[in-house]
Structures are given as C-alpha cells and as structure tokens.
Amino acid sequence: MTDTNTVTVVRDESLIKKTKAKSIAGKIGIYAFLVIYAIIILFPFFVVILTSFKTAADASNPEFSWWPTEGFTIEGYEAALTSPLVPTPLMRAFLNTLMYVIPPTILGLMTSSLAAYAFAKLRFRASKAMYTALLATMMIPGAITISSTYTVFDTIGWVGTPLPLMIPGAFGSAACVFFMRQFFTGIPDSIIEAAKLDGVGFVGIFFTIMVPLSTPALIAQGLLGFIGGYNDYLWPLLYTNVPGMQTLQISLKQFTGMFGSRPNIVMAGTLVALVPTLIIYFFAQDFFIEGIAASGIKG
C-alpha cells in the first residue's frame, strides 16, 4: 500500500496546465489504440463479407481488390448452400446441429439450475462435499478422457450417433451450476419462506419463484450453452463424422478441401455459419457480457 500521509496540495497553475495537456494527449492515444484494435477485430469480417460476394476468379486473384471487380454475385452462396459435393449439405448440417444442441441445452439448463437451487437455498448434509466435487470437475482437462470416452461410446454402440453429443450435456454443467448458484443466493430467503408457509414445495418454489426471478440469467446461460454446442468441433468430429450426420462446423471444415480454389464459396459458408451466433450475440450481448464477467470474478 502507498502511504497517503504526506498529502500536499500545491496550486501551481502551470503544473495543472501541463498535466492537463498531457492527459489530453494521453486520451487521444488511448482512443487511437482502442479504435485501431476495434478495426483489427472487425476487419476479418469485412474481408469475409466482401469475398463471399465476389466471383471465384475475383476472390482468388493475386491482386487483392477492395471491391468486387467483377460485380457482386451470390454464386458463392448458391454453391455453399446447394453444392452436391458437400457430404452433409450446409442446411442439413445446420438442422443437425440444432437437433443435437437444443434439447441437451434445455435439459442441461434445467438440471444445472435445479442443482444450483439446491446448493443455494436448501440445507442438506452433503451440500458442501457435493459442491466441492462438482467444482473439481471443472478442473479435469477434457483432453485426458478423449480415448477412454471413445472406448465407452464404441462399446455401447453410440459412435456414429449423436448421443455422445447429447446425453452428457443433459446432466448439466458445473460451470452453469456455479453461475446459477451465485445468482440464486442473491434471492432473498424471505420470499421463499413466505411461499413455504403457503404450502409450496421445494420444486414448486423453484418454478414459481426462482425461475421467474432469474429469467435473464437463465437465458444467458442457455444461450452460452447453445453457442458452445453450436461451435463445438472436437466431439462432432469424433462421433458424428458421417455424411448426412455432420454438424455445421464439420461440414464447413470440409469446404477448404473441396473449394480450395474458390474462396468465395468458403467465405460464403463461413458467413452463413457465423450469422446465427452473431445474431444471438447482438440481441443478448448484455446478458452475455455480464454473465461471463460474473462467472469469472468469483472464480
């Protein structure tokens, strides 16, 4: 800690002027930095959008053009969405992804938040031990169990089915329990006690009090869970890498091999794959950012 005992305020006008000038220069520097960084983040998206509307020849022209020289075309999108070369057509892969991701996200959200409610508001002897065990799971690196998990799913015949992508998530996630517990803890006990006196049971309290009071948090967690599943790469690569069953990400990944010389198609596919998560993000950014900030601070 710095010692603040020697506070001497000197009213030196020239000094104040000098520091003011310095701080203005500093401000400009900071804004310049922040703007440049924002451009660096946005620039690749500009390139993707631009390229996706170019012709194949234009997109692979060694002389990079900042505007489609052969005019705007949607041939990249047509090929990305309808090309028979793609083992799992993009739209099919998109529907596959929704089918694999939405049910476990909803179920997992429910199981996680029920558990979080138990940890936050119910008293039971094993509470602390169970909570510690759950937090410990967040520490286990997923990579260690890739081979043995594959053996398990191979043995029970789940390889080549979406079940390995769906079933584990339905049990909930430690991170979601952790986050929702923080949130539920903030809900005053007095409301719960009142409901108890009215004869509402534990699960009833969860649905009539906890859920309505924490809808934004639940939505944030649900959306984060959905985006995590939607963007996942390793597990769909391991378990549903079969033509017709592939997820959007796996299907998209194959674009580089198939359309290597026609980058306009690859970029169109990339943009199509990005749009859903970007839309969700733009509409729910506050939920997201606050949800993530809250989960990290307490960690």
């Binding site: 138990a118 039971f124 169970m130 759950l134």
Partner: peptide
C-alpha cells in the same frame, strides 16, 4: 429438505461420475 436437496444436487454429479470420473 435433506432428501430434496441431495436429489436435486446429485443430477450433475451423476453425469460427472459417468462421463468424467469413470472415463478418467
């Protein structure tokens, strides 16, 4: 409360045991 709490809290833990601990 003991029973309800333990049951509700155990669902993610069961998942962890099956898909985390056992494979580990």
């Amino acid at each position: 409360e003991e029973i309800a709490g333990t049951l509700l809290a155990s669902i993610p833990l069961v998942g962890f045991v099956i898909f985390g601990m056992i494979p580990l």
